[in-house]
Computed example of a mutant assay.
Amino acid sequence: MNNDLTPQQGIILYSHPDDHYSHRIRLALAEKNVKYQLVLVDEFSEDVADLNPYNQLPTLVERQVRLYESHVILEYLDERYRQAKLLPDTPNLRAEQRQYAWRIEQDWMKLADILLRHPDTLDEQAANQARQSLGQSLVSLSPLFAHFPFFMSEQFGYNDCILAPLLWRLPQMKIHLPSAHCKPLLAYCKRLFERPAFIASLTESERHKQQYPLHR
């Protein structure tokens, strides 16, 4: 990451220091080896409010381009920077990966968002239900990860950028995967977390999130 860039010279990424939506963008940039200026924002920012009407993170600025939704940003980066492609070249395979991404958002990310809320706004009953649902879903779908080294693909791609930040936060969400039933998923996690780009994508806050193993 280069801290000497200006909006006219390259990318500025406004990112929360510990948010899986921001993390997926940092991971994509690291995989593509794109230099950028990282601005960490953990509360209301006038700079971000001036850039998008929702004052939400992540927000990416490159010259006259201002983007503030993670899927829009991921697709922009994949089209703008062609190295280390995240989506396949053919329309049918791209659509298939986008459909997987939509299902991940619907089935897993909504539950994760409940569990990753600030403790002051966390509904314990809703959190317990979300924790049980997400944990059971991951266990039941673990065999899916045995077929390919990455998510439904031979190569690291779009949905790995989405899943890696979520899976890294399982201990934070108090979800522990039973090793006897989740070997394919745990092996997938290991492949993701050992990638140099994933390590480079972590903020200091995120580096301390995995204080104990994913499995039990």
Results as ranks from 00 to 15, higher is better:
P149K: 07
R80P: 07
R80L: 09
N3I: 09
F193C: 06
Q83R: 10
K32H: 05
L40E: 11
P196Q: 14
F145E: 03
E194G: 11
M173D: 11
W108M: 08
D4Q: 14
P149Y: 00
M152G: 04
L167I: 12
Q9L: 07
Q136I: 03
A200N: 07
S140I: 14
E43L: 01
Y158A: 02
T90P: 00
D50Y: 09
M1A: 14
L170V: 05
L67C: 05
R103L: 03
R191D: 08
L167C: 02
H208N: 13
H23T: 15
S153G: 07
A30P: 10
L5G: 06
Y21Q: 15
P7E: 12
Q9F: 02
N55C: 07
I11P: 04
R26A: 04
Y212W: 05
P88Y: 03
R103V: 02
L186M: 10
Q64E: 08
N55F: 03
D107P: 09
S205I: 05
V41W: 01
S179V: 15
T121M: 00
L93S: 11
V41C: 00
V72Q: 13
H23N: 09
L40C: 07
N128K: 11
L177E: 04
S137A: 12
L134Q: 09
D47K: 12
L38V: 04
E79R: 13
L202T: 08
A84N: 14
I104D: 01
A95P: 08
N159F: 01
V39Y: 00
D113V: 04
S201E: 06
P184K: 12
I199N: 00
Q83H: 02
T203W: 02
E75N: 11
S142L: 05
L38E: 13
N92G: 00
D50I: 09
P165T: 13
N159L: 05
S179D: 15
Y36S: 01
G135E: 05
R82I: 08
